[in-house]
């Protein structure tokens, strides 16, 4: 868990090229590896927004969040863990339906059909 910390846009020092946009599923998530970290990247086709968070679910520490269903709750974009359906805000990382610790979220940008995830290291 300690490997992951939420990175605000202002702290980004590295924009890591994660892949071409068409390598990511539409309306779902996929996982990339940055150093030894697993990062889940989601594309919300309806709002045309991209989000990223740690792939590790804080509940049972499994690397599975990227395989979860995405959606929104009261306008907040979220991902539901495939294991036990804990949901996490992709804006703040907060656990929306339980008392798990938050997940780390990272900024994402798209340039020339490539997806970049922002890291502070």
């Amino acid at each position: 868990m300690t490997a992951y910390t939420t990175t605000p846009l202002t702290d980004v020092t590295t924009w890591f090229r994660a892949g071409r946009t068409d390598q990511f599923p539409v309306g779902a998530g996929a996982v990339i590896k940055y150093r030894d970290r697993q990062i889940a990247v989601f594309y919300f086709n309806r709002t045309e927004r991209w989000y990223a968070c740690q792939n590790l679910c804080p509940h049972k520490l499994e690397n599975v969040l990227g395989r979860g269903l995405i959606g929104e709750q009261d306008g907040i974009p979220k991902v539901a863990c495939p294991m036990h359906k804990r949901t996490f805000s992709l804006e703040t990382g907060e656990n929306l339906n339980g008392d798990c610790p938050p997940v780390a979220v990272y900024p994402v940008k798209v340039e020339n059909d490539y997806v970049y995830v922002g890291f502070a290291d």
Binding site: G68, G71, E72, Q73, K85
Partner: peptide, 10 residues
Amino acid sequence: QGNGCETCKP
């Protein structure tokens, strides 16, 4: 309405 969630998708 809105953009869906893990309940209505399946």
